[in-house]
Write a protein that binds this DNA or RNA. Structure first.
Lengths: 341, 341
DNA sequence: GTTCGCCGTTAAAACGTTTCAACTCTTGAA
DNA sequence: TTCAAGAGTTGAAACGTTTTAACGGCGAAC
């Protein structure tokens, strides 16, 4: 008969009900092999009857260690980060840990609240995709003893482990693909220009462009205000308005949303993809393959990003000698109809 | 000068460093107004110097209450649930609580692990979109004293608060819209048929259909294996293959992914939307408005779902008299070009 | 019959915080 | 001058668990 909701049953209560000492109850919980079959059964029965729930606070206070990993994500609404989180969960599960997630929604004060909270909870490790990778708050936390790993961002210096994807390489791979397909009039579409990922992908694209012996001036830059479908459509209007002799034959979009918007507008304008305009996106979001013309894109190893981050933070938490490392993953081109046709 | 990582600075250390008693340090933390300006400054200085981090476990153990709400979501990769989570966070923030998220990924054992974990952490309230709303685990937790609210699901009986959206009503509203637009040959597209939401939306649609005096037999049912874009495209092929005299003039899709796939295939087949086929989706996902033809859809108040759930669980946690209630939200039709044209 | 070792169990200490009653000054009123 | 009130501070107790040293009982070995 389970107990009434009348607050918190403790080991002491269980001990009394089972007619054993409190230490024995703890043994049943933590080292069941040290307890005789009979008493163990009696104690477990009492726990079930009384509705005993271990008090994690007390357990952690005494034992000093928690069984959780925390990930503070930048934007829970973005599938990229939830995939990263899934990777973290996979790795944590393998170590018998649970993962708790905090969502900052790109807001500094929420990020700080979560970080404080998790630090005070003494989580075993703290993974974070920070609003600002250079925030001193991260240094403080690390200095006070909680292992911190930066995810999908990097920062100068070797104060942290970090895992990220090589955006410069991604930009280069993308451009090389378009060049391989024979395109010599190419547009780079994306913005705002000061966003690290936009900057890096453009830099990579420019490198490939230059290595092909082409004039840097000839790479068409179409800057967008943001990274949305609407921005892509707007860029599409600009392209459609060009004379066919001047219009690029291919577009490298800094993300898939822009690429999808572009694709829609291009089709609506009566142009054909890829015959009139090849389109290459970035991120390989779930709907990329399901677009009207299946979209070529650059895929990032999202789950692996998470798994690796979790492994790193656990290695650091384990305490042996540990040197911080910056892991940079290689993005992968996924060629589909929108550039192959 | 911040301390070395050599484990955990306690209030005792701070007290010693500041030359005050341990109780005073606690007062600085919890009732700063009771401490004189001078000592407060001295203590705060010591805390900063030593890198003091409050131990949440000890705090909670002693005070008995936690400052967190937990939400165990069914699928962190689904934007619906992240929107719900955002709503929960909004409400929690207003109460000065933080929210931790657990992701079950529709797996029972992960759900159980998270629920156990959060119960043991003595969270103030537990929100959950369960794999199985009838799981006895939920009863156990509630009986042991942690307030539980079921989100986006309901269960019979009055053992829990729950918040959900009225899918029957949503189906009816959708069908009424198509009938209002004059359609009399209509297809319902979705599956698998045993999914609660498919069943409910179809039931609502049928009610509206019957109320319009139409023969139930005339509502065309196109069953899909799943709820993906690919399923929608496949349904589109079936529709396009019909003679124009027999083909429905409108399709109500059980979710937006199917609707988007259908739309793509319809356009690819040379049919016009909405002239040849009006299309109505469900969920109003982010990309619905950005489709080639902006998609009409049925919107669910996702954030409000979360806010309400959080408010309910907090009310229950507050402890006054509380009667469990089942809140059913009203979905809202968003009419766009795909049914208006 | 004594000793030894082993097993199951116990009692007490410790973790770091919050709370509370008690104490010491200081100040203003009687 | 005495007293009351109040502000500021203190020390100890308590939260529920884990851990450890010690204990009693029992069979085996001598």
């Amino acid at each position: 008969m389970p107990s009434t909701p009348g607050r918190s049953v403790s080991v002491k209560d269980v001990a009394a009900a089972a007619g054993v000492s409190l230490g024995t109850v703890s043994n049943v919980l933590n080292r069941p092999d040290r307890v005789s079959e009979a008493t163990r059964a009696r104690v477990q029965r009492a726990m079930a009857d009384l509705g005993f729930v271990r008090n994690e606070s007390a357990r952690q206070l005494r034992s000093g260690v928690s069984r959780t990993l925390a990930y503070v994500m930048l934007d829970a609404g973005n599938p990229f980060f939830t995939d990263v989180a899934a990777g973290i969960e996979t790795a944590a599960e393998a170590h018998g840990l649970t993962v708790v997630l905090g969502n900052s929604g790109s807001r500094r004060e929420r990020e700080q609240a979560h970080l404080d909270q998790f630090e005070q909870q003494r989580v075993q490790g703290l993974l974070v995709t920070p609003v600002d990778p250079d925030s001193p708050l991260l240094d403080q936390i690390a200095r006070r003893g909680t292992p911190v790993v930066i995810v999908d961002r990097t920062r100068e210096g070797d104060d942290f482990c970090s895992v990220a994807v090589d955006d410069v390489l991604g930009g280069r791979v993308a451009m090389e693909h378009l060049l391989d397909r024979g395109h010599r009039r190419v547009a780079f579409i994306g913005g705002p220009a000061d966003l690290g990922q936009v900057r890096d992908r453009l830099a990579g694209a420019r490198t490939a462009w230059a290595e092909a012996g082409l004039d840097p001036e000839d790479l068409v830059l179409l800057s967008t205000a943001d990274l949305t479908v609407a921005d892509g459509r707007e860029a599409g209007q600009r392209l459609a308005g060009m004379s066919s002799s001047r219009r690029p034959t291919a577009a490298f979009c800094v993300n898939d949303l822009i690429a999808l918007g572009l694709l829609q507008q291009v089709i609506a304008s009566g142009l054909r993809c890829p015959a009139d305009l090849a389109i290459l996106g970035y991120d390989d979001v779930e709907y990329a393959a399901a677009a009207a013309v299946p979209l070529s894109s650059v895929r990032q190893p999202r789950q692996q990003l998470g798994r690796t981050a979790a492994d790193l933070v656990l290695e650091e938490a384990a305490g042996g000698e540990h040197t911080h490392q910056r892991v940079l993953f290689t993005p992968e081109l996924v060629a589909r109809a929108s550039t192959l046709g």
